[in-house]
Nucleic acid binder design. Structure first.
Length: 255
DNA sequence: ATGACTTTTGCTAAAAGA
C-alpha cells in the first residue's frame, strides 16, 4: 500500500483551476498540498470536491492561502502554525494514513524590510518547535510546501538570485538546517544527492527554457517515514503548459 | 536597469512574488 502526495504553489488557484484538475486526473495522488491560493476560503473552486477530493482550505484575500485535497477524508489538526503569531494564511495540518502532514507557505522574506525577514525566521522557529513536539509525541509526520529557502548553492542556478536574497541568507539556511538536525530528511536530496532539481522558474527572461531555476519547494520526512521513501519527482512537464504557475509540483511516493 | 513577467487589488498604477 503506497502513499503519493505532492506540493504545488499554484500562484492563484482560480487561474490554475484547469491545470490542477487535469493534473489530479493524470497523477491521482492520495494528497495534494496547494500554496498561494490568492483567494478567500469562500471562493475556493468547488470543482475539486466534484472531482472526488476532500478540500481543507485556509484562504485570504489577494495573498497567501493554503489548501489540502485528500482522496480519503482526513482529520484537520491545525489551521495555522502553532507559535507563529501572524494572521497570514500559511499553514494547514491534518492527519491521514497514520501520519501528521503539515502544508506550509513560508514568507519570502524579501519584502517588508527587516521586519519582513524577521517574520520568515519566526516561521522557521515555530516549525522547528512543532517538529520537536511531534517527535516527542512519537508521531510519523512530514512537512511539505513552499519553504522559500535554497538549502545550498547547488539549489539555484548561477545568477538566478542576488547574493543577499532572503532565500539563501545564512539565517534562512540555518532555520532549514535546524530542521535537518532534528532528524528530518530532505526527501529530494535523500534520493538525488547532487544535481539540478529545481521546483521554481521565474516568469522573466525565459528562465524555464534556460533551466535557470530554484529548489525551494520541499518535503521533510520524520525518521520512520524517510525509511519508506520511494521516489521524489519535480514535475517539469507542468511548467511547459500554457499559462503555468511559476512553481512546479513536487511529487513524493512512500511505500 | 528601483527593469524584465504574473497576479491581485478601492484596478487608467502599485505591491508582491522569488
Amino acid at each position: 500500500m503506497s502513499f503519493t502526495f505532492a506540493s504545488w504553489n499554484v500562484n492563484s488557484i482560480r487561474q490554475r483551476e484547469r491545470h490542477v484538475l487535469d493534473w489530479l486526473d493524470r497523477v491521482k495522488p492520495d494528497l495534494l498540498c496547494l500554496q498561494e491560493l490568492k483567494c478567500e476560503t469562500g471562493v475556493f473552486p468547488a470543482s475539486f470536491a466534484e472531482a472526488g477530493y476532500h478540500p481543507v482550505v485556509v484562504g485570504q484575500k489577494a495573498y497567501n492561502g493554503v489548501a489540502m485535497l485528500t482522496r480519503e477524508p482526513a482529520e484537520v489538526i491545525n489551521l495555522s502554525l502553532p507559535g507563529f503569531e501572524n494572521d497570514a494564511s500559511r499553514y494547514v495540518e491534518l492527519r491521514m494514513a497514520g501520519m501528521v502532514i503539515g502544508n506550509l507557505y513560508l514568507p519570502n522574506g524579501n519584502s517588508g524590510g527587516a521586519a519582513g525577514f524577521e517574520t520568515k525566521l519566526n516561521f522557521l522557529d515555530a516549525l522547528a518547535h512543532r517538529a520537536k513536539e511531534l517527535l516527542e509525541a512519537e508521531e510519523d509526520f512530514l512537512f511539505t510546501g513552499d519553504f522559500n529557502v535554497c538549502p545550498t548553492d547547488e539549489d539555484y542556478a548561477p545568477g538566478a538570485l542576488s547574493p543577499d536574497d532572503a532565500l539563501l541568507r545564512p539565517e534562512s539556511r540555518a532555520g532549514w538546517h535546524r530542521l535537518l538536525w532534528l532528524g528530518l530528511t530532505d526527501a529530494l536530496r535523500a534520493l538525488h544527492p547532487t544535481g539540478r532539481h529545481y521546483t521554481f522558474y521565474d516568469y522573466q527572461n525565459a528562465a524555464f527554457q534556460r533551466n535557470a531555476g530554484l529548489r525551494i519547494d520541499h518535503a521533510l520526512l520524520s525518521p520512520r517515514l524517510a525509511e519508506r521513501l520511494v521516489s521524489v519527482t519535480p514535475d517539469r512537464d507542468e511548467r511547459a503548459r500554457d499559462q503555468p504557475s511559476d512553481h512546479i509540483p513536487l511529487i513524493v511516493t512512500l511505500s
